[in-house]
Structure formats: C-alpha cells, structure tokens
Amino acid sequence: MALRDEFSKLYRKRDWPALHSALDAAAPYDAEERCCVAYWRATALEAEDRCLEAIDVLTANRDDFSCKTMVHADIAENLRRLGRDLEAIDELSKAPMDEEMERYRALVVDAKYLLAHLLATNGLDVEPSLLDEIPENYIHITSRGKRITKADLLAMIPGKSPGCGCLQAR
C-alpha cells in the first residue's frame, strides 16, 4: 500500500510535521486505509510524547482495526507511559486475547507480556497461565527500542526466577 510506505518513510525520518500533513491529506476509502492512517497517527503522537492524543485516536478508530487486542495494548502502553498503570491493566483486561490468539498470535503475546509486566511492576498477582503463554525465548521490544526478556519479567515476580521450573510444573 502506497500510503503505508509514505507514512513509514516519514516516521523513520522523525519528520513529524510532514507526517501529520501527509496523514491529514490522506483520503482513506475503506476500513483498512482508515486503520492505516489511525495507526500511523497514533504511533507518531506516541513518539512525540503526546500519549493522550494517541489514546484518543486509537479509541476513536478502534472499530477499523482487525486486531482489537493490538488497540487495547497500544492504549495500555500509552496509559503506562502516563503513569496510569492500573488503568492500563484494566484496558488490557478488556482485550479479546483468547479469541484472537490463533489469528494474531504475535500481537496477543505482546499484549499478554505487557499485562504480566504491568501486574508484576505493581506488585499484583500474575496468573501462571498468563506466563505459560509467553515463550521462554520471548523478547519484548518497547516503543523506545528497549529489549525486555521473559527472564527479566520472571525476575520481577517472587518465586518465578528463570530456570526454576515453576512454569513447567503447571
């Protein structure tokens, strides 16, 4: 899709005014193109630390996205960046992860990781079944490029250190 290529190029350049102009000029004719425009606008707003605006864009356009879990996860990530972790957990709890796991496995695993990380960070219980669905070699890459492994996550949870066999025992 030509729109996606143009937006991606401008995003990589971090040319926010040009990207927003291109997004404003886009005339999406179907849900897929509306989704593309909404995705790139929300992604740019997040990169500009305009998290509330990114949440508004995602919320307003959530019906155009095929993977609803991704929208919930992106909203949750923006809430997390705003220091609103409990709201982020609530947002992720509404995501249809189980229903979308087969079709959008990678996106759902990312959302499950984010949920487990938020729960652990806030001292809340992380269900073993949630951890079991995250592959042992999983690496979460944040929007800022930071890499976090499942081992890093397990180290945050009392009694769940990597290699302890706690996941295999369930």
Rank of each mutant, 00 (worst) to 15 (best):
M1K: 09
M1Y: 12
L3N: 08
R4V: 03
D5V: 13
F7T: 01
F7W: 01
S8C: 07
K9M: 06
K9Q: 11
R12M: 04
R12S: 01
D15G: 06
D15W: 01
W16Q: 01
P17F: 01
P17L: 09
P17N: 01
P17D: 07
S21M: 03
A22V: 03
A22M: 07
A22N: 02
D24W: 04
A26I: 00
A26D: 04
A27S: 12
E32T: 10
W40R: 08
W40T: 11
W40M: 11
R41S: 12
T43G: 06
L45G: 02
A47S: 05
D49L: 11
R50E: 09
R50K: 11
C51L: 14
C51K: 05
C51Y: 15
C51N: 13
L52T: 15
E53G: 09
A54Y: 05
I55A: 11
L58I: 02
N61F: 10
N61D: 14
N61V: 02
D63C: 08
C67V: 09
K68A: 15
M70G: 02
M70K: 13
A73V: 01
A76R: 05
A76T: 03
N78F: 04
L79P: 06
L79D: 06
R80W: 04
R81N: 09
G83F: 07
R84E: 14
R84P: 10
D85G: 12
D85E: 12
A88G: 13
L92Q: 08
S93E: 12
S93Y: 06
M97W: 06
E99T: 05
Y104C: 11
R105Q: 15
A106F: 14
L107F: 07
V108C: 14
A111G: 14
L114F: 11
L115V: 04
L118P: 01
A120S: 12
T121I: 05
G123V: 04
G123E: 01
G123M: 03
V126I: 03
E127W: 08
P128C: 01
L131P: 08
D132W: 08
D132M: 09
E133L: 08
N137C: 07
Y138G: 03
H140S: 13
T142P: 04
K146F: 12
R147M: 13
R147Q: 14
T149K: 13
D152R: 08
L154H: 06
L154G: 03
I157S: 07
G159S: 09
K160R: 14
G163D: 05
G163C: 04
C164F: 05
L167V: 13
R170V: 06
